[in-house]
Design a protein around this nucleic acid. Structure first.
Lengths: 245, 245
DNA sequence: TTTACCTATTTGTCAAACAAATAGAAAATA
DNA sequence: TATTTTCTATTTGTTTGACAAATAGGTAAA
């Protein structure tokens, strides 16, 4: 008769413990701001050493699930990650995927075009005066004699303001990936004065159309911007590939 | 005259070290599959203890940036995270955001409608026979007398197949957030036979339109599905809120 | 009333040791 | 000669035990 075997556990103790606590948090069994047992108590409960518990907790902290504080009112608490923390984590992930070649330029371009057009439709309807002001401020910043880094930061600022005008946090959250996934590629063009001029021109057209709440000119400006960027990226990549041979 | 003060560092050593290594990875200074110095060597280099190094490394491991192995050919290696690993991390994040109320139902609904309509446009053009087969298989699975969990899993399977038909990894990556962010809400409806029938009906219409490559019927079917789901969610939430008072 | 000091608690860091996993080399066996 | 078993050194995983640092709140002093 056949013998049944239990699955062999190859994961480290710390990882297993982290997974258990993570599941409890995601399932709502641990509430935000709830205090976990002390490290000593957790060690006793899981029957492991305190350093092992600490390794497990550091995994959770790295995922913005918990935070800790020393002192009599200290301890380890389930945390409420801010949207900014999550976005930073997400863009780091996206940046890694791009650098690993998981996302090719055509896919990024297409995703950005489609998703930003979608946002544009909502932004044209819903933009507020303060969001318009932010778009304008980013545009003005790009027109200054600023560094490549600042130009790129202003570029992100402009597109984030556009996405913020959708008034939809889910779209905002997702668009940050796409906007900043192109960041390393935008860096290739930021040093060229001519490219800056063209980008600023399209941004100006975008801004004008959004301000006037005219969807068609806005769509065309965005299409032309994405077309231009994709074309320049391709040229820059080809040139870079050729000059490195 | 004024005295200048250096910024006081309040972050733990482990976190600071993790951030430095993470930056090196994201900036490409550390390549995938590259082996880091041993824990002993890192401790010497950063002038800290080995347990502190281990805590830093566990943070990076939790973010799928490194992996480790014991033994003579062991060590700590920069890892190439799979798209699945990243998606799992992302959906965990999205699930947390939903449960924390960062994403309200209207925003989720709107984002899903807009983004899935976008994907639908591409999917109708690009779907392959095997993707159609996968859509059909998920649909057939939902029509079986299965558990609530399996019904929800089949629901995700159907929509993932739809998104996969866009042939765009960036859209796929982003859509997983939106698809699974609604997962806890779909759970509310999966136990009701009547709701299942309606959902299956819309899925059938979607499948038929995608198979026939007719965009308008596909759009209408998706709109009706999202409308139905949003309406039922609202009712279920209102009912749940009322019965918990 | 305000400021300074103190205490006990919890996390952060450390040293040292040993366990476990492991690739490949060497030895034993068929 | 080919295959299997054993062994070794390396690196990570885990533990024990200790002490440092941060800290909220209570108490004492000004």
């Amino acid at each position: 008769m056949a013998i049944n075997y239990d699955r062999v556990v190859t994961q480290s103790l710390a990882k297993q413990i982290a997974e258990q606590i993570r599941s409890a948090i995601l399932q709502g069994d641990l509430q935000v701001d709830e205090r976990l047992p002390t490290e000593e108590e957790l060690a006793a409960r899981f029957n492991v050493s305190r350093p092992t518990i600490r390794e497990a907790l550091k995994r959770l902290a790295a995922q913005h699930l918990i935070r800790s504080r020393r002192g009599p009112t200290g301890g380890t608490f389930v945390t409420r990650p801010s949207t900014e923390e999550m976005s930073d984590a997400l863009t780091g992930t996206a940046t890694l995927m791009v650098s690993l070649g998981e996302f090719d330029l055509d896919s990024i371009s297409e995703a950005r075009r489609e998703m930003e057009q979608l946002c544009l439709g909502l932004a044209v309807q819903r933009r507020t005066e303060s969001q318009l002001a932010e778009l304008n401020a980013a545009l003005n910043q790009q027109q200054q004699p600023i560094s490549d880094e600042d130009f790129c930061a202003a570029d992100i600022r402009f597109h984030r303001a556009l996405v913020d005008a959708t008034a939809n946090p889910v779209l905002q959250f997702n668009m940050y990936t796409v906007i900043e996934a192109l960041q390393p590629l935008t860096n290739m063009l930021a040093n060229r004065f001519r490219d800056r001029e063209v980008i600023i021109g399209h941004h100006q057209a975008l801004y004008n159309a959004i301000a006037a709440q005219q969807i068609e000119p806005a769509r065309q400006a965005l299409d032309q911007l994405i077309d231009y960027l994709t074309c320049q990226y391709s040229k820059a990549l080809a040139w870079k590939q050729q000059s490195s041979q």
